[in-house]
Design a protein around this nucleic acid. Sequence first.
DNA 1: TTTTTTTGTTTGGCATTCAAACAATTTGGT
DNA 2: ACCAAATTGTTTGAATGCCAAACAAAAAAA
Lengths: 146, 146
Amino acid sequence: MSADYQQISDSLVKIYSNILRIEESELRKSQFNNLTIQEMHAINAISMYEHKTASQVAKELHLTPGTLTSTIDRLVKKGYVERIRSKDDRRVVRLGLTKKGRVEYRAHAAFHEKLVKQFLQGFNGEEVGVILQALRNLEGFMDEYS
Amino acid sequence: MSADYQQISDSLVKIYSNILRIEESELRKSQFNNLTIQEMHAINAISMYEHKTASQVAKELHLTPGTLTSTIDRLVKKGYVERIRSKDDRRVVRLGLTKKGRVEYRAHAAFHEKLVKQFLQGFNGEEVGVILQALRNLEGFMDEYS
DNA sequence: TTTTTTTGTTTGGCATTCAAACAATTTGGT
DNA sequence: ACCAAATTGTTTGAATGCCAAACAAAAAAA
């Protein structure tokens, strides 16, 4: 195993075991300091305009329906999300962001954009292609184990 | 924002919001199916031979002392970890892996190695250098926000 | 020797998660 | 139209995961 190889391994471990913690600590310093990282991910999955159903969001987040219910309960109480009973099918709950939820969504997207900018800083188009391919390899690995 | 850029952003989000979940689901299928991902990370931080103190491990994992105490309690009960009271300084607790803990440690390292292999699959030395630099950029971003 | 600091544990409380039981509604089969 | 089955989401009960604050023991500093 080469030196580069070991460094990449260490780097990956460091990144994936710290990135969510760092996102959360940034959140704590912002105006949205009463949100946890999981709640923020839920807001992200609900997203701006689509009014997905609870099932769809639960599947996206790999959560059981019961877990999602409690997450949504909290987000409703905190004023980020609203439940909309579907009129076609009265079993279905559609989810939407409140104005406050949409503001948070955009703030988080901006943070991501800064992150990606720094990740790709200093590379030309060809190099960006290499990086993209490596990430796809990793996605492929993850898909195998899903 | 270019198409590549957007794809890299999506890929990064997918990776960092799923990789730990996938590690955990692999764990569930193995002989170590009574470990959670956090417990596994603790085993990893304790590591093979050093007998770190509880404080050192807590710092590494960004956990409060109280949280670490309860994690270690569980790992001791499950037979992966042992507490060793220091003789020099009787306040200090040093942590070590049992034989079972060391077996788990190696199994997890092997999983990581497969992951990194697939991540770097098909690239030459120069390209690996580009990938390493991108990861370092990301580490730099994380350090700014720590 | 007394005070302060360090190290780890305990306590209390909330968040996160799942599995299983449940209720409401819709769909499918007859 | 009616009954059985499937779907959708909620509730309940239990374990883990986390922190802050109070605490106890030991070591270091004064």
